[in-house]
Amino acid sequence: MILGKLAFYLNVFTVGVLSLWLSLIFIGITFRLSGSVLSTFTAKAKRRILWFIVLTPWLIAVIVTLVLMMPARLDSYANGFIATLVHWHHAYTFSLTSWHALTMALFSSVFIFGVIHRMLSVRKNLHRLDLLAQFSTTDDQASEILESNWLSTIESRLPQAFTAGLFQPRCYVTTGLRDSISTNEYTIIQLHEQAHRRRFDPLKKLLFAFFGSFFSRVIGEQLNVAMELAMEQCADEAVLNTGKEASAIAKTLLKVTRLTMAYTPKQASVQPACDFLTPQLDERVTYLMREQKGRAFPVLITSCLFVLVTVVCLLSVDTLHHVTEKFFIH
């Protein structure tokens, strides 16, 4: 049995973990039930909503922990209104053989495993990128469009264009793609990739995926796919804002897709790029061609949802605590 300050901090951690899990469940269910509404928003709003979804559980966990544990720290509030509603009894007592310790150990294991797994995966990915960079050359012709020569050309027949790298992202275009498209299409691709580079999308994707991985696997994947689409739509929109015609951008998308499809695995022993779900291209094209891009970020709805989930979590953590300790030994 641990007593005193250390016990208090361990209890804070436990409350934080419980609140996080509960808010992940509540937000996850909300997303599962209303995820289809996302397509009615602008790409920018979609990005914000998705960030709100993955970050809110963490913020709620902090708030719930503060509300539950503050009365224990501040004696004057100990008998106050909040403490009569919710409180964490035995704040200064922590048993290593209790369910609190089990919760803490479970979360720590999942968290550490998740971080290590992601770091290894990122390292592997960065090594591949490093090697690829060695076989690429800077495209001087692109300097007018991409500031500071951030475009590299890879000599390969595989038609591909992408932006990669975490802190210094670069845009890559293969010669196979560059030589099969017109100057205007090449410019559209460069502007699109530049938008990804300017926004540090690869890094943001990684961070988003990390926070998304705390949801269930199905919801995590849905969130990643939705963010991928929102990022692509934002990059398409950035090209649109430079004055390029929507139809020209959409047609370039279709042309590059056709080129990728024509490049069969037999020719190079590679599958055509990543498994970008079919509806993604559909949505990108229809979004580009739509005059009304959609609704703005729903401040009122998200604020209400935030308050509601925080209150539900606050009450649930306290209830869960009391119910568990009523039936089981602490």
Binding site: V122, Q160, P202, G220, N224, E232, A273, C274
Partner: peptide
């Protein structure tokens, strides 16, 4: 989904 460090133009 999520470990990719790239944003492809299309796939």
């Amino acid at each position: 989904k999520g470990n990719s460090l790239l944003a492809a133009f299309t796939s």
